[in-house]
């Protein structure tokens, strides 16, 4: 947790690989926070990173947000769309950070074998991390395309933003004609999380 004065600022870091839909997911989150009446900032790097490189998006919201980037050790939630990327961005988390980890494995270019022991390492360092199987999630949703928005649904349980704010954000950001499908995916993600134990955010 990080506060400026008395006000809590939420820090959500999304990590993954170019092409996984992180930009859209973080756009939806930031817009939902704004729709809920918060100040919000979000930052990510375009350009080179999009050609299969590592991608992160920082989303921060609260009463007044200054820095668009999160400070190391201060993320409330790390939502990782790729297994190995979780470890790469772990320095942004602390013992109380909620970790939501998709077990998707994407090989970096010119790497023959996916490194072993990643999941175990995450479990050791962050015992309360929640792992999600993207294939199972995609099957539930019926389309792989909406997994990123479903993961916003998983976040919804932790962040306590009103449902109307999420709906408005999704309507405003997903491609035309897919709002309903994305909303269904979001709800599937959200229901998934309320039926499971929370990822253990230390403070609200």
């Amino acid at each position: 947790m990080q506060s400026t004065g008395q006000e809590k600022i939420w820090n959500i870091l999304m990590a993954g690989v170019g092409g996984q839909g992180i930009i859209l997911a973080s756009d939806v989150l930031a817009a939902a926070a704004l729709a809920a009446g918060f100040d919000a900032k979000k930052s990510e790097i375009h350009g080179m990173s999009q050609r299969g490189g590592s991608v992160t998006s920082h989303v921060r919201f609260g009463r007044t947000v200054h820095s668009p980037v999160i400070e190391e050790g201060c993320a409330d939630v790390l939502l990782s769309l790729e297994l190995m990327e979780t470890l790469r961005w772990l320095p942004f988390t602390h013992a109380g950070t909620g970790l939501i980890v998709s077990t998707e494995k994407i090989l970096p270019a010119n790497v023959a074998e996916y490194p072993a022991g990643i999941e175990e390492e995450i479990r050791t360092l962050a015992p309360r991390a929640r792992f999600l199987d993207p294939a199972a999630l995609a099957e539930k949703i019926g389309d792989k395309k909406y997994v990123n928005v479903a993961l916003c649904g998983v976040l919804a349980d932790i962040l306590e933003l009103p449902e109307t704010a999420w709906r408005r954000a999704i309507d405003a950001h997903v491609p035309g004609g897919t709002a309903d499908a994305n909303w269904r995916a979001f709800c599937i993600g959200r229901d998934l999380s309320s039926s499971c134990p929370g990822p253990g955010v230390s403070s609200r």
Binding site: V17, G18, M48, S49, Q50, R51, G52, G53, S54, E71, E72, G73, C74, M84, E85, L87, R88, L90, P91, F92, T93, H94, A95, T97, P108, A109, N110, V111, P115, G117, I118, E121, L125, A126
Partner: peptide, 16 residues
């Protein structure tokens, strides 16, 4: 704040 750190060596993921 101290962030969590892993000692595992990860392969870099540069753009290609």
């Amino acid at each position: 704040a101290e962030g969590l750190r892993s000692s595992l060596r990860l392969p870099p993921r540069p753009p290609t």
